[in-house]
Design a protein around this nucleic acid. Structure first.
Length: 278
DNA sequence: TCCTCCCTGTTC
DNA sequence: GAACAGGGAGGA
């Protein structure tokens, strides 16, 4: 379940393995793993310039072909890993993984593999046109690590939905999933089902700080590996060892020692402390 | 604003 | 052999 810290880690580890290489071949092994109007072949003979991230989307940027690129110019590839998506670079003579959905042949002889057991993830070729018509892209909220406390609070203030539902809503803030929603709400002392309009500005600003802290700590730990997530180099992250509530239902609260509560909030499994969060 | 569905491997 | 994991689209 790659969220912001995991996608950021993948971008950082993938970058040195693909930058400067030209895409010489493409293979789409599962038709539904490609989203949007442009085929993967539009990426052929283009050189990778950089690897970035926006929300939970991993972005592979291509070098421009001319000084004044046309509107139809392909600029890169967006990858949404959803729950089980992975990106690996491997030598050409290595056997492809069991759940390979797309393979890119690189000019250094290696291959970039998009592997996705549950087929929820997707690739989307980017151009100015395919971005401007992409609703999900256009509606993405601000990056939580690039938003100040006042702007963050303003996106929650007065709203009737549960705090957890808003944290998970990518149009409110981009990049937060189930793990970091629960972890940041615990650190801020806010119960997940609390309506946003019931939460004071001071507490919203506390949540802003808690979310930034937990995201920074997770990035430093190379993300959280529950089962599927790996860096582009195949390594597991370490932040799962620092979870205070996620996956700890029925265990003792690290703060007060009481038993952590579990349930469903915003349609997602949720863990919190009824004593420390309100 | 909230619910169901898409997918498959793992766990109970 | 069913429940569960869950991001986001789509519909109520």
């Amino acid at each position: 379940m790659p969220e912001l810290p995991e996608v950021e880690t993948i971008a950082q580890t993938l970058s040195p393995l693909v930058c400067g290489r030209t895409i010489l071949g493409v293979e789409l092994l599962n038709a539904k793993s490609l989203d949007g109007p442009l085929p993967l072949e539009t990426l052929l003979h283009r050189r990778v310039k950089a690897v970035g991230r926006r929300g939970k989307l991993l972005l592979i940027h291509l070098e421009e072909r001319s000084a004044s690129p046309a509107k139809t110019e392909v600029t890169g590839l967006a990858v949404h890993l959803k729950m089980t998506g992975r990106l690996f670079v491997y030598a050409h003579d290595t056997k492809a993984a069991a759940h390979a959905r797309a393979i890119f042949h690189l000019s250094d002889g290696n291959r970039l593999l998009f592997d996705d057991t549950r087929k929820f993830g997707y690739l989307r070729v980017m151009s100015p046109e395919t971005l401007s018509t992409w609703d999900f892209w256009n509606r993405l909220g601000p990056e939580p690590l690039e938003t100040d406390a006042a702007a963050f609070a303003a996106r929650f203030r007065g709203r009737g939905a549960a705090m957890k539902a808003l944290l998970l809503d990518q149009t409110v803030i981009a990049g937060v999933g189930n793990i970091y929603a629960d972890e940041s709400l615990f650190r801020a002392g806010i119960a997940p089902a609390t309506r946003a309009r019931e939460v004071s500005d001071a507490r919203l600003e506390k949540l802003h700080a808690a979310l930034q802290d937990v995201l920074h700590e997770a990035i430093r730990a190379c993300g959280s590996s529950i089962r599927d997530y790996r860096t582009a180099q195949g390594d597991a992250g370490a932040f799962q060892n620092a979870f205070r509530v996620y996956g700890r239902m029925g265990k003792a609260c690290v703060n007060c020692g009481r038993t952590l509560e579990g349930g469903r909030v915003a349609g997602r499994s949720t863990v919190w402390c009824t004593h420390c969060q309100y």
